[in-house]
Amino acid sequence: MKENIYFVTGIDTDAGKSYATGLIARRWNEEGYRTITQKLIQTGNTGYSEDIDLHRKLMGMDYTEEDRLGYTMPEIFTYPASPHLAARLDNRPIDFHKIAEATRILSNRYDRVLLEGAGGIMVPLTEDYLTIDYIQERNYPVIFVTSAKLGSINHTLLSLEALRNRNIRLEMVAYNLYPEQEDQTISQDTQRFIRKYLERHFPGAGFIEVPAIKKN
């Protein structure tokens, strides 16, 4: 597997993964790295991926050829639920070979691929196969999205411990400031604590702020 694929996950469904993914892709493109985003499994849509739509808006670009061919959204299910449940309700299994082949094609065409998961790292893809299993099998480095909301410290540390227990490399933590929190005391201390934790336990990992800018 080429080492230009980064798996984007986070503390939960509302961590702002899609927002962070789009902005990181835009930043990398501006730095000269041809970057594309892909959604591992999209649920709650029919025939398109709302997360890819958001990525492209934030990246300031139209749909690509790879979008139109479905490589960036290889598996779409109609029910807005965890992939294992959405697949069951649509009465068809997730085609993991199709996903992996689409990712391979993108990694050959672009300098970097941001592969956004669904929910957090322990979200089930099938009854006995978790997102973290998928990440570990493919040896993807992780970009982990957390936020300033109350509870983020607990959810972040639990997730990072799970990554370390699986020997999964943490590439960076993206601290999502969108939407802007009313309580800046909690927001600022949460960021301070997570930064200190990374310095002690994941010294090789990067840290970036995802600014609270408008989607359009």
Rank of each mutant, 00 (worst) to 15 (best):
I5A: 00
F7G: 05
F7V: 04
V8R: 07
T9E: 01
D12H: 05
D12R: 03
K17N: 08
K17S: 09
S18G: 15
S18R: 00
T21S: 15
G22L: 11
G22I: 07
L23I: 08
W28S: 09
W28C: 00
G32Y: 01
T37N: 14
L40F: 13
T43H: 00
G44H: 06
G47S: 09
Y48R: 14
Y48K: 14
S49A: 04
D51V: 08
K57M: 14
L58G: 10
M61Q: 15
M61A: 12
E65C: 06
E65F: 09
D67P: 03
L69P: 00
G70N: 06
G70T: 06
T72V: 12
T72Q: 09
M73R: 13
P74E: 01
E75G: 03
I76T: 14
Y79I: 12
Y79V: 13
A81N: 01
A87P: 05
D90I: 05
R92L: 04
R92Q: 08
R92K: 15
I94V: 15
F96Q: 02
F96W: 02
K98L: 13
R104K: 14
L106A: 06
S107G: 00
R112H: 13
L114H: 05
G119W: 01
V123T: 14
L125T: 09
L130V: 09
T131Y: 07
I132V: 14
Y134N: 05
N139S: 14
P141G: 10
I143K: 11
F144V: 11
S147I: 04
A148W: 05
G151C: 05
G151L: 04
I153G: 09
I153M: 10
L157M: 10
R164S: 13
N165M: 13
R166H: 10
I168T: 03
A174G: 09
N176T: 11
Y178C: 11
T185Q: 13
T185N: 12
E199Q: 15
E199I: 04
R200W: 10
F202V: 02
F202H: 06
P203Q: 06
G204L: 01
G206A: 07
I208S: 08
I208A: 13
V210L: 10
V210C: 04
P211K: 09
I213S: 12
